[in-house]
Design a protein around this nucleic acid. Sequence first.
DNA 1: ACCTACCTGTTT
DNA 2: AAACAGGTAGGT
Length: 282
Amino acid sequence: MPELPEVETIRRSLLPVVTGRDINRIVIDSPTVFALPDPAIIMGRRIAAIRRRGKYLLFWLTGQAAAPVWLIVHLRMTGRLTLQPEATPVKKHTHVRIELTSPAAPEPAWLIFQDTRRFGRLWLQQGVSPDVWPECLAGLGPEPLDPPVSADCLAVQLARHRGLSVKAALLNQSVIAGIGNIYADEILFAAGLPPDLPVASLTGANLAHLAAAIPAVLTRAIELCGTTLRDYVDGWSQKGRFQACLMVYGRSGLPCRVCGHEIRKKKLAGRTTCWCPVCQLL
DNA sequence: ACCTACCTGTTT
DNA sequence: AAACAGGTAGGT
């Protein structure tokens, strides 16, 4: 489900409500999803900020006379992170519930982690900055949007993966952080590149088109609050609207919205890949 | 550079 | 009944 635009939309939707609130209670229904050795580590802490790195959400938890702790969330395919009013009944596939209170707000609220397929995970990181946390964030490539990735940066990042197809390279989180199957296909369409093109055969002009397409597609997707195909919603349970703008993903057999040629589909890098054989002909 | 596993639900 | 789904870790 969530790629960079969806995770960023969730971050922005939660930000104004959740920052400054205090953790009053935590209920873990699935210890495999969140192995929290001792709830006392985060009890009473305040959510001071929310950051995003690639597809990870990072909650900065401060406490009096205590070193800050990071709560790290990855939603994988079907994870949801939403706010619910205090009295909301517990829904199916709820794995973690965090009750948040605020001196300014009379009613507590729940921050809920739901995940049908249970691939999503939560972790705690104490002491070390999450950027160097070896188990996840340390291996991530650069953020594609701040600043917008350049052709030079892309060339450097791709240099270690010359044997991959350009689609496989875009999906590799150590090349650029945050791109998944939907946006890889959409970016390659916007760049006019065939997905099975080997990285080794990319020209300078190809790299320039690719570098321009990455921020263009991701920024537009964020503006439209992400892509809702089935499960994805933001922190207020609102769907995204970028699905109406998809040019190739999920459109196999349909006419290309630019040239009218039939959109094709095949497995590449283990993932279904859709492209226009005319607009993306080298 | 590929394959499978991890899960549950939906579509073919 | 089988294939497939936004992701990634781990094995070969």
